[in-house]
Amino acid sequence: MRLPAWLAQHLAALRALLVLTVLTGLIYPLAVLGIAQIPGLKHHATGSPVHRGGTTVASALIGQSFTGPDGKPLVQYFQTRPSAAGDGYDPTATAASNLGPESVVDTVPDPALTAAGKQDENAKQSLLTRVCARSKAAGDLDGVDGRRPYCTTDGVGAVLGVFHRDGLTGPVTRVVSLNQACPAAPFLSTYQGVAVQCAVYGEDYAKAVVTPIRGDAPARPAVPADAVTASGSGLDPDISPAYANLQATRIAKARGADVATIRKLIDEHTTGRALGFMGEPSVNAVQLNLALDQKYPLHQ
């Protein structure tokens, strides 16, 4: 007996659904799970957990913030790169800041809220100011020059809003340091003979020509780029050997160890380029800090 066309089509679709469900919902996942149990792969497939004393204390794939209850860096630990994932290294909120190189102007906070000790949710730091602030903080922490091009000495983007008589051209009539809210003193006193003003909350500077000022910072900053920029995932546990070695003197002092031995520990935890030519050498800061606690424990 020949089935009606509509019924034959539905039965064919049902068979295809069952076959694909078995293939993609059972056979394929079980095959991948079986392959993941192969020695050498199992550790990575289970999240690369790091154990100490029988307890899982970290994942080698996810960074951590080595800060105190006040949010300040703990001087006895290597600091990792910044994170834009949630409150920092949150696997459930993995993300980047999505700010690009043209993000140079801040949205200054409401001074009334600041004076009251409150946070202005509408205020926003540009990528440039974030980089400047992080570089200054890292420099202060490790006793090096934290200055960067296009940054002010107080750690914000050195950006002027320049008003011209004829819009984009003509003599300069007014200059505002866009990222330094009043009553801050502008990083420049004058620009092309015109006094530089601090930024006033609520004023519209849309007609100003945004003008970054390079300043006299060294061409190669002492603080490496990975110390001031977050990774795309916000979970990266790796830092550059340059950033790790920058922190060696501080770590040695805090741990009562010799700087040379700390640098040797860094070398032992440095991974070369993938396949010998891809990427850059890196140091897993989480594993490095765990090794630091093992070899040079803090005295209570």
Rank of each mutant, 00 (worst) to 15 (best):
D106W: 00
A116W: 01
P101C: 10
V209H: 10
A225S: 15
N122W: 12
Y205Q: 06
C198M: 09
L178R: 03
A206L: 14
A225D: 15
G100F: 14
S126T: 04
S189T: 12
V228I: 14
A158N: 06
R148S: 05
T173G: 11
P218V: 02
P186M: 07
P224V: 09
N122L: 15
A219V: 13
P224M: 07
R220F: 13
A217C: 09
I213H: 06
G202L: 10
T211V: 07
F163W: 15
A184L: 11
V228T: 12
G139E: 02
V144P: 00
V196N: 00
P221T: 09
S135N: 05
L160K: 01
D204S: 09
T153W: 10
A227C: 03
L128N: 00
A185M: 13
A116Q: 08
V200Y: 11
A115H: 10
A112M: 13
P149F: 04
D166V: 10
L188Q: 05
D110P: 10
V196W: 00
V209E: 12
T211F: 07
F163R: 12
V196M: 01
A138K: 00
A138M: 05
V144L: 05
G202I: 10
V194A: 07
L168Y: 13
V200D: 12
A217H: 03
G167V: 01
G146T: 04
K118W: 10
C182G: 08
R220Q: 15
Q180E: 07
K136I: 11
D204Y: 01
K118D: 11
A219R: 12
A158W: 01
D204W: 05
K207T: 13
C132S: 08
Q192F: 10
Q119G: 11
N179P: 06
P101G: 12
Y150E: 10
Y205I: 12
P212Q: 03
T211S: 08
D216K: 11
V159S: 01
G100V: 14
D145F: 10
L141D: 07
K136Y: 08
G170M: 09
G157D: 04
L127A: 09
V196I: 07
V228G: 04
F163V: 09
V200H: 13
A195T: 15
Q125P: 11
I213D: 02
D216S: 14
S177A: 15
